[in-house]
Computed example of a mutant assay.
Amino acid sequence: MTRLIVAAGGGGDAVAASMLDAALYGTGEPAVILTYAWDRLLVDPVPGPRSPDDFTGLRPLTPHVPAVTADTEPVAPAGSTLPRLAREIPQTITLIDPRYGAQGIAVQLTSLVEHLEPESIDLLDVGGDILAHGDEPTLRSPLGDALTLAACCQLDAPVRLLVAGPGLDGELPAGTLRPLLGRNILTLAPEHIDPVDGVLEWHPSEATAMLAATARGIRGLCEVRDAGLPVPLTDEGPTVHEVDLDATFTRNRLAHAIAATATLTEAEALSREICGFSEIDYERDKALRLSTRAPAPLDWDAVLSEVAEFEHRARSRHISHTTFRHLTEALNLPGTQRDALKDLLLRTHPEQYAPPLWHIPGTE
Rank of each mutant, 00 (worst) to 15 (best):
I5K: 09
G9D: 09
G12K: 02
S18K: 02
L20A: 13
L20H: 02
L24I: 01
L34Y: 00
T35V: 09
P47T: 05
T56Y: 02
R59L: 15
H64Y: 01
V65L: 14
V65P: 02
P66N: 09
A67I: 08
A70F: 01
A70R: 01
T81D: 03
P83Q: 08
L85C: 14
I89R: 04
P98T: 06
D122Y: 00
D122F: 00
G128I: 07
H133T: 12
D135F: 07
P142E: 13
D145E: 15
A146S: 15
L147G: 03
Q154P: 01
Q154R: 13
L161S: 10
L168E: 01
L180K: 12
L181I: 11
E191W: 09
I193T: 05
S205E: 11
G217T: 12
V224G: 02
R225Q: 04
D226I: 09
E242M: 10
A247W: 00
F249T: 08
N252K: 04
I258F: 07
I258S: 08
L264R: 05
L270Q: 15
I280D: 03
K286M: 13
L290N: 07
D299P: 04
H312M: 10
R313C: 13
A314M: 08
S316P: 00
F324M: 15
R325N: 03
D339K: 08
E351P: 00
P361W: 10
G362A: 15
T363K: 01
E364N: 06
